[in-house]
């Protein structure tokens, strides 16, 4: 198996799907000649030409709207929003139109659009290059929302997303682009949408997480293993549809749940999981369900001390695990 980083895995998935299906095309700012500001699409314009890798004007609302129209006509567009922070101009097209086109046409219109969104902080991005936007799309019926954390997962899920006939918001944590490396198998593979993955088996506490935080959770689990705290780490991978079965099975086994995500705590994905567990695993809980998440502060301040204060990290997770264990 080859060892690659996340951005290489994304690029491989895009290339393979574009080779496989001529209806797949990419559009967005700087995706063509420059290969994307993170080099996610590097080399694709040389291989597939500028009609299938389109450098668009700087206009997110029209990036979304044009993709939608092309999808109505039978194409499979992959529009890129350069940073999640810039997705807001596209919200009407995304939530008002794209999410509703199939339902509102009684299924006559299909919308096989994958919106690729680099997101997340911890890279001194300030208020406008760090945002976590997933909860709003998680909340919207009609959209699928995916947020993988490893090269293996991101390649397999991006391919599945491109082949899916529903609109997908595909979130790529930008700090993992070069910071996470892992094995990619040779040959064709996909990962089903809607399937979580137990990345570490354990007995005492369940952690549910996704994105960059997954890796800090794994570090924290290793750190407390020597203290006799055995942590099971569940990587959601897909946020919507949520793999409730894997989450509930894990909580029933351990009896204790800690949810970790970078997004602001109030109304985040973690709140939904906590409610789910309180409803369907109530009899198995041996302690309160807790969340370690980004604070309710605009995401996220620029100065180093303020960013560190904001971001969950391995040490904070270790402390939270110890408190859970001691309950």
């Amino acid at each position: 198996m080859a060892v690659k980083n996340v951005i290489e895995a994304v690029r491989e998935a895009l290339r393979e799907e574009m080779q496989r299906d001529p209806k797949v095309f990419i559009m967005g700012e700087d995706v063509g000649q420059r290969g994307g500001v993170f080099l996610a699409t590097q080399g694709l314009i040389d291989e597939f030409g500028e009609s299938r890798v389109i450098d668009t004007p700087l206009a997110e609302a029209s990036i979304m709207g044009i993709a939608l129209g092309a999808a109505f006509r039978g194409m499979r567009p992959i529009p890129e929003v350069q940073f999640s922070d810039f997705i807001w101009p596209a919200m009407n097209q995304l939530i008002g139109e794209t999410a509703r086109a199939c339902y509102g046409s009684n299924g006559v219109l299909q919308v096989p659009v994958v919106i690729r969104v680099p997101y997340g902080g911890g890279i001194r991005g300030g208020l406008f290059h760090s945002q976590n936007v997933e909860s709003i799309f998680f909340h919207t019926p009609g959209l699928k929302v995916i947020a993988p954390a490893t090269p293996y997962d991101i390649k397999g899920l991006l391919k599945s997303a491109i082949r899916d006939n529903s609109p997908v918001v595909f979130l790529e944590h930008k700090k993992t682009y070069r910071l996470v490396r892992g094995e990619l198998p040779e040959g064709e593979y996909t990962i089903p949408i809607g399937q979580a993955d137990v990345k570490r088996a354990g007995e005492h506490i369940t952690i549910v997480s996704y994105g960059l935080m997954l890796h800090y959770c794994l570090e924290a689990a290793e750190a407390v293993a020597g203290e006799g705290i055995d942590v099971e780490v569940v990587d959601l991978r897909t946020l919507k549809p949520l793999d409730t079965e894997t989450v509930l099975n894990s909580v029933k086994k351990t009896g204790k749940l800690l949810i970790v995500h970078e997004d602001n705590v109030t109304g985040g994905v973690g709140a939904e999981i906590a409610a789910l567990v309180a409803d369907e695993a109530f009899e198995y809980l041996d302690g309160p369900v807790r969340r370690l998440c980004g604070p309710d502060v605009p995401t996220m301040p620029f100065a180093q001390t303020l960013e560190d204060e904001y971001m969950p990290n391995t040490d904070k997770i270790v402390e939270a695990l110890r408190r859970q264990a001691a309950y």
Partner: peptide, 22 residues
């Protein structure tokens, strides 16, 4: 220092620039 350099408001000099969403 909540934002990128010189973003926000400098009302003493009659300037506002809130974001990078150009």
């Amino acid at each position: 220092a909540r934002q990128f350099p010189m973003q926000g408001a400098d009302l003493d000099h009659n300037i506002i620039q809130i974001s990078n969403v150009v």
